[in-house]
Nucleic acid binder design. Structure first.
Lengths: 310, 310
DNA sequence: ATAACCGTGCACAATAGGTGCATGATCGAT
DNA sequence: ATCGATCATGCACCTATTGTGCACGGTTAT
């Protein structure tokens, strides 16, 4: 409803480059360039300036983007209210989330919606949290399940989004089965301070969680190896190369030589899993139903855990 | 910026028929029909229902239209603020107004703007007040100079518009030069109660003013003739067919056998001339400048009058 | 210097969106 | 009841907006 060109501008405000905007919106770079040029022409405003080999927003451009937050939210709110009031059905629904969430939360959600609303076209996009927010801005998806990051550029009070906490997913330790501590039920991070650790690449989504967990208990871990996928990390641990942190929701399957231990002590690291939608859209019946389904699913996961994990 | 389809829906909400909407927006009826169908498809809402040989808004449709008022205002406000902040220039500016206003107020405004902002494309549309509001909604014009009507469907608090009083234009009496009262300076409506009156067709813009003037003094005039143009009315009076009311701003030129008299007494009818813009757009530099020019012009007109007319 | 990157202009293609006319449906008047 | 007027809509056709792919020029880093 809001002109696509303005949406594109908003995405550009996030990305900073035409190319990235094109990739995110699904257009070609030429199209993005043309759209922004047309937007400036029709508004009679100069929104972009050359900056080195790229372009950047002018003050007017930043002003417009900032102000458009409430405009978008207002529209989402209006649409949601109209859907609510008219008891109407949506035809398309885009979901986004990271791998574990997609498997444990989004897949059941999509399945449920497919049965309760047969003529609703549900599309799931697997993407990391940062990209999920971008996809929300770009209106490629309508709801995202992501890991809340304290160091995230998207604060809880970002005027573009509304976030709902689904559950806290504690981090476990995985150690080789032949490790001296393998027979323990629980362990503290301090006890593992001197171990060689396996983590994800610095700058990745979960590396921040890893460091946060250790800074909380005042320990500086020695990072021996880096992996990208959980599976790889688990395999490394199984090979005796070190120990690692694994979210409770990430399945261990039947990995050889790997044991999973609960963490105790004051650290008790966890990742917070939240659902995010565009601000204003939260009143939509479909969003409400989806959040309900996710919440039920989350509660079921929590209920399946021993009581000491709350 | 707001999708043209929503604007069309808003116009339809005013008109009630596809044909009238087409006429007002400048589209063909087929295009309007297609637009509204597309709008419903893309929103997944049923906005229209068949009603006899026409269509009407559903509850959802009315809800959406009502809610869109603030959305439009928000956008206008944002655009105005961005123009203000960035000191940018607009490329097109649409003005609307009725004949007298167009001649006395809009023409000077357009001329001034043409000199102060050479590359601004100014377009003036002559239209009656009701149509001016429609044209504002349809975004065909950006500023209208109209006669405020108490019985108007557009109240001063309509969420779609913001109105600024420019001046009160008193109504004079015009009578044949050979009339017994022709030598008088002033006259009261009561003195003319028994005269045959010449007015505009019932339902026209100014007929309401006419009746309001007489109901204010408790007199029921006898309507002898009806005219459409001021010129015609003046000619009728000159021919001795009766007397009439003429706004001060409407020129008498050098009409034969017609005398213009001020009205005294508690009636003192006047028409209030106001400038109207879409809500939110009033902060725009161009609108601000235009309102200033109009106000100056209005004050000059007031200053040129004898002091007893204030 | 050279390579990599970024944005933009251009030729071309796809498609959204327009018009005009014919059609069907409804309502009012004769 | 018939006829004409009024309205919305579907269809064929056309226009022009809008997208793509590629080449090019400018800028930065190696």
């Amino acid at each position: 409803m809001i002109d696509a060109r303005l949406i594109t501008l908003r995405v550009f405000a996030r990305c900073g480059t035409i190319g990235a905007t094109a990739e995110l919106t699904g257009y070609s770079p030429s199209a993005v360039s043309a759209q922004l040029r047309e937007l400036q022409r029709m508004l009679g405003m100069q929104l972009l300036t050359k900056d080195g080999r790229g372009v950047r927003l002018t003050a007017t451009g930043r002003f417009l983007v900032a102000g458009s937050d409430t405009l978008i939210a207002e529209w989402e709110s209006l649409r949601a209210a109209a859907m609510e009031a008219g008891d109407q059905v949506q035809s398309h629904f885009g979901l986004g989330g990271f791998s574990t969430a997609a498997a444990q939360l989004l897949a059941p959600l999509a399945a449920t919606l497919r049965s309760t609303r047969p003529l609703l076209e549900v599309q799931v996009l697997e993407a990391n949290p940062a990209r999920c927010f971008d996809l929300l801005v770009a209106e490629r998806i309508d709801l995202a399940v992501i890991v809340a990051m304290q160091s995230d550029t998207y604060g809880e009070d970002d005027p573009r989004f509304e976030q709902t906490v689904l559950l806290d997913d504690p981090l476990d330790v995985i150690i080789p089965a032949d490790h001296p501590l393998a027979s323990r039920q629980t362990v503290t991070l301090e006890e593992l301070a001197s171990e060689p650790w396996i983590t994800e690449a610095a700058g990745s989504t979960y590396h921040a969680l890893f460091t946060a967990a250790f800074t909380a208990v005042g320990v500086t871990p020695r990072i021996a190896h880096e992996a990208v996928e959980w599976e790889t990390q688990i395999a490394f641990v199984g090979a005796g190369l070190g120990v690692g942190l694994l979210p409770r929701l990430a399945p261990l399957h039947n990995a050889e030589n790997v044991v999973r231990l609960r963490i105790t002590g004051k650290g008790k690291p966890a990742r917070r899993i939240v659902a995010a939608v565009r601000r204003g859209s939260i009143a939509s019946p479909l969003i409400q139903e989806s959040l309900g389904i996710l919440q039920v699913r989350a509660n079921r996961i929590l209920a399946a855990r021993p009581e000491d994990d709350l």
